Lab assay of single mutants.
Amino acid sequence: MLYRITVRNADGEKLEIVVEMSEDEVRALAEELRKAGYEVRVEPIPEGEEP
């Protein structure tokens, strides 16, 4: 499935990426980023919607 991941650092800089991963993989990635001090938001992209 496609997911949009938005990551912000302490300075407020934002990075937005689209990935194709399983829900478990995305959850693990988000958890690791949060542990590293980043603010993370994950949104699933519905099938048929443009990323």
Rank of each mutant, 00 (worst) to 15 (best):
residue 37 G to M: 02
residue 36 A to S: 04
residue 29 L to Q: 03
residue 22 S to V: 11
residue 22 S to I: 15
residue 6 T to E: 07
residue 11 D to W: 04
residue 49 E to G: 08
residue 41 R to H: 13
residue 27 R to W: 12
residue 24 D to L: 14
residue 47 E to H: 14
residue 51 P to Y: 01
residue 41 R to D: 07
residue 15 L to V: 08
residue 22 S to T: 14
residue 14 K to V: 11
residue 17 I to N: 03
residue 40 V to R: 00
residue 24 D to M: 08
residue 45 I to P: 05
residue 13 E to D: 10
residue 42 V to K: 00
residue 1 M to H: 07
residue 22 S to L: 15
residue 49 E to K: 03
residue 38 Y to E: 01
residue 31 E to I: 05
residue 39 E to H: 11
residue 48 G to R: 02
residue 8 R to S: 05
residue 1 M to I: 12
residue 6 T to A: 03
residue 1 M to F: 09
residue 10 A to D: 03
residue 20 E to D: 08
residue 29 L to P: 00
residue 17 I to D: 01
residue 15 L to S: 14
residue 33 L to W: 13
residue 37 G to E: 01
residue 27 R to D: 06
residue 47 E to L: 06
residue 35 K to P: 00
residue 35 K to H: 04
residue 9 N to L: 05
residue 4 R to W: 04
residue 45 I to S: 12
residue 49 E to T: 13
residue 39 E to C: 03
residue 5 I to W: 01
residue 38 Y to L: 08
residue 3 Y to C: 00
residue 36 A to Y: 04
residue 20 E to S: 12
residue 33 L to I: 05
residue 31 E to T: 13
residue 38 Y to C: 01
residue 48 G to Y: 13
residue 9 N to Q: 09
residue 3 Y to A: 01
residue 36 A to T: 04
residue 32 E to M: 12
residue 41 R to P: 00
residue 39 E to V: 14
residue 13 E to M: 13
residue 20 E to H: 06
residue 29 L to E: 01
residue 19 V to S: 04
residue 3 Y to S: 01
residue 11 D to K: 08
residue 4 R to Y: 07
residue 36 A to W: 03
residue 35 K to M: 10
residue 44 P to A: 12
residue 45 I to L: 11
residue 22 S to F: 09
residue 5 I to Q: 00
residue 36 A to G: 07
residue 32 E to L: 06
residue 16 E to R: 10
residue 27 R to Y: 07
residue 34 R to V: 07
residue 39 E to P: 02
residue 46 P to K: 14
residue 30 A to S: 13
residue 10 A to C: 02
residue 42 V to E: 01
residue 46 P to H: 14
residue 21 M to A: 13
residue 36 A to E: 05
residue 43 E to V: 14
residue 3 Y to G: 00
residue 20 E to C: 03
residue 33 L to T: 01
residue 18 V to R: 11
residue 50 E to S: 09
residue 29 L to R: 08
residue 29 L to I: 03
residue 12 G to T: 03
residue 16 E to D: 10
residue 49 E to I: 12
residue 29 L to Y: 15
residue 29 L to V: 05
residue 27 R to P: 01
residue 34 R to I: 05
residue 32 E to A: 05
residue 8 R to P: 01
residue 13 E to N: 15
residue 15 L to N: 15
residue 48 G to W: 07
residue 12 G to A: 05
residue 33 L to G: 01
residue 28 A to E: 05
residue 10 A to W: 04
residue 8 R to M: 11
residue 29 L to S: 02
residue 20 E to Q: 10
residue 38 Y to M: 08
residue 7 V to N: 00
residue 50 E to T: 10
